[in-house]
Structure formats: C-alpha cells, structure tokens
Nucleic acid binder design. Structure first.
Length: 367
DNA sequence: CCATGCTTTCCTGCTT
DNA sequence: TAAGCAGGAAAGCATG
C-alpha cells in the first residue's frame, strides 16, 4: 500500500508518461509546463499550475493529472483509493463526469474534485460569458442518477467483453457533453440534430431541461418516448380526455401519466423558460441552424426564421409533441406584460428582448 | 391542500 | 386566403 504521499511518485510516473506522450505527439508546445518536467512536478502541483488558468474543458491529460495530484496532496488523500488507469483523460472528458461519477472513481475525494472543477469553470466563465451562461453549463451536471447508471453500464459492458474493467471515457464523454441539460435541448432530426450527430441525446426525441426539473429523468425518457406513440394510440381508445369549452385540455393521457409518474424530480430547480430557450438558441450557433437570427443584436431584436421548427424543439423539450408556433407565440406575448419581451410593431415573427430579460446582451456575456 | 407562477390550449377578431 | 398577431379565458403542472 502506498503511503498517503505515495500519490506523488505514482502520479509523477503517470504524468511523466503522459508528458512524454504529449511531447512526442505535439512537440514541446507553447508553455513552460510542457517543457520542464521537473519544474512541473516540483512546483506546479501545488498552486501555480497551468490548469488553474484554463477552462477545465481545455485541459490536456497532463493538466488533468496535475489537478488531481494537487488535490490528492492538498487533502492528504490515500492514493491507493484511486485507480490511476481511470485518470487518463483530458479536460473535456473530465468535465463530462458528474459528481457521482467522480465519487465512484475517486471515492470521497470525488466530491471535492467535483466542487473544485466546477468552481474553476465558473471562475473561468465569469470572466468571459457572465452568470447566465455559467448557470446553463452547471445545470447540465445535474443528471447524476442516470449518469451513474451509464457508468455502471459501461463498466459492466467492458467486463462482459473480457476487457479490463476500465471506463469507456469516450462514451461517457459523448454522453455527458451532449447531455448537459438545457444546453443540448435544441435537437431535432431536421434542424439542430445534425449538428450533434453521433451523440446519444441527439438521437432521442427529447432533451433534458436546463433547470434540472427534467434532467434527472433522462434514463426513462428514451423508454417513454419510444413507446409514446403506442401510449397515445391505446389511450385514445380508452382514456379520452373530457370535452370542455375553452381553456387547456389535458395534455397527458392517463397511461402516459402513469408512465411518467415515477419521473418526477425530487428537487427541481427552476425550469427552463421559453424566453431562455429562445435566447440560448440565438446565442449558440451550433444549435441555431437557421432557426432564429438576430435582427439587431445590440437591441436584442430577433426574428424567427423557422417558426414551426422552433416550436417543435420547444415541444420536444417540454415533452409536448403538439406544440405549435401559434401556442409558442402566445407564450411569447405573455412576456410583453412582464417586460421580458417588447413588442416590435408591424414586423412578423420579430421580437425584442425586454428589460427583464438577461444573458443576451453583449455586455452581459463579457462582464 | 392551497396559492402562485409559468405556461399551454382554445378561441375570436384583426392585420398583413 | 393563409399566416401571423393580439389577447381573453381556462386549465395543467411544478413548486413553495
């Protein structure tokens, strides 16, 4: 059993190995830490590391190890509790892991690692994008139960195929990076989905909620959605909603309701609002494939280019296949009163963010 | 259980 | 004529 401080030498070896690999692959890149192994190991571990200055998702494998070593040292954590074979990942992969996954891998230290990772990211993003963006990113980390199941699944699969019980980081990464709650919500086969081709989520008709109110239900979503149409057919025959004059009829049939009942979030933070959904499509070019465009970026004026497609995406997000632009626009009009949106008279499909909206201004993103 | 906020649905009338 | 807009009414649903 290695001593508490044994992690130093163990990680040193791993880091040296990674360092050599990276150096061989990319030469000796730009920074001091890549050019002086001894310097890196002696000083960077504790406090002045290159990882500290970077968004964690941009970390190299080496920087991930630096970061790990720093926390192991800092918390005098027993290195024997860590399977170093699981530490070989870059920052993007690391970022994709949920808190539970980090605990599974790193034991009690996982919690601290998770906090550290995301506080670092918050600090980094605060410099560049503003709080709203941070919230969006952080909200994507909430689907822990399903993540844990996925982790189990991946490990079990590897064991089944007689490999070392290592984690398929690529699979985990793909899942996580495409799963971050609301971040990846806008996915549909004919619009945004193409930009996410290959991800697990992009192939599913729905996507999680930014606020987490749905994010912990994703494990069951695919199951639910795959049988959704069947539920509809069955329910039409024996559980029709009662007729009424005006107002909102039941959206979910009784079977669907039964199916969904186990999916409620225990602690749903604020859900995603429509205006935030719209805003984030506008702000994220990779998901905005001709759906919306800025008419006047500085004034917050934007236009629907594919109104029905946006409505479909909103419907997907809200698990509502009957969403239309007409309904969506009604919700948009309610924002006028709350001054989240302002009217743009005489222009069809054009809206303007109001003073009670946030996160879209260029100043917000830079502040 | 209740109040509240945020939609969602339906509707009528109007405008483009 | 179709599509979109405006806004009232009523209901669903999550949350506190």
């Amino acid at each position: 059993m290695a001593s508490v401080y044994g992690i130093g030498s163990i990680l040193t070896d791993v880091m040296r190995s990674v360092y050599q690999t990276e150096e061989n692959q990319a030469g000796c890149p730009n920074s001091r830490e890549h050019c002086s192994n001894s310097t890196l190991l002696s000083t960077d571990l504790l406090g002045t590391s290159s990882w500290l200055q970077l968004d964690p998702r941009l970390w190299s494998r080496l920087q991930v190890l630096e970061w790990l070593a720093y926390h192991v040292e800092k918390h005098k954590y027993d290195a024997n509790n860590i399977d170093l074979s699981l530490c070989d990942m870059d920052g993007a992969t690391l970022w994709g892991l949920s808190g539970n996954q980090l605990v599974v891998i790193f034991g009690p230290l996982g919690e601290e690692l998770y906090r550290s990772l995301h506080s670092l990211n918050r600090a980094s993003l605060d410099l560049t994008m503003g709080e709203d963006f941070n919230d969006i990113f952080l909200q994507g980390i909430l689907g822990e139960e399903s993540d844990e199941k996925l982790l189990d699944t991946v490990i079990t699969w590897n064991e089944l195929v007689n490999e070392e019980p290592t984690v398929d980081w690529k699979a985990l990464s793909d899942f996580q990076l495409s799963d971050p709650g609301y971040e990846s919500a806008p996915t549909s086969p004919d619009s945004i989905g193409s930009s996410n081709a290959g991800s697990l989520v992009s192939q599913a008709p729905n996507s999680p909620d930014s606020g987490g109110s749905e994010s912990d239900t994703e494990t069951t979503n695919a199951q639910y959605n795959s049988s959704n149409e069947e539920f509809r057919k069955i329910s039409l025959s024996n559980c029709k909603p009662l007729k009424r004059g005006r107002g909102r009829p039941r959206k979910v049939t009784c079977e669907e309701r039964t199916c969904l009942e186990g999916r409620k979030s225990k602690h749903s933070p604020r859900g995603t609002h429509l205006w935030e959904f719209i805003r984030d499509i506008l702000l994220r070019p990779e998901t905005n494939t001709g759906l919306l465009k800025w008419e006047d970026r500085s004034e917050g004026i934007f236009k629907f280019l594919k109104s029905e497609a946006v409505a479909q995406l909103w419907g997907e997000k809200k698990k509502n296949s009957s969403m239309t632009y007409e309904k969506l626009s009604r919700a948009m009009r309610y924002y006028y009163k709350r001054e989240i949106l302002e009217r743009v008279d005489g222009r069809r499909l054009v809206y303007k963010f109001g003073k009670n909206s946030s996160g879209w201004k260029l100043g917000d993103l830079r502040a």
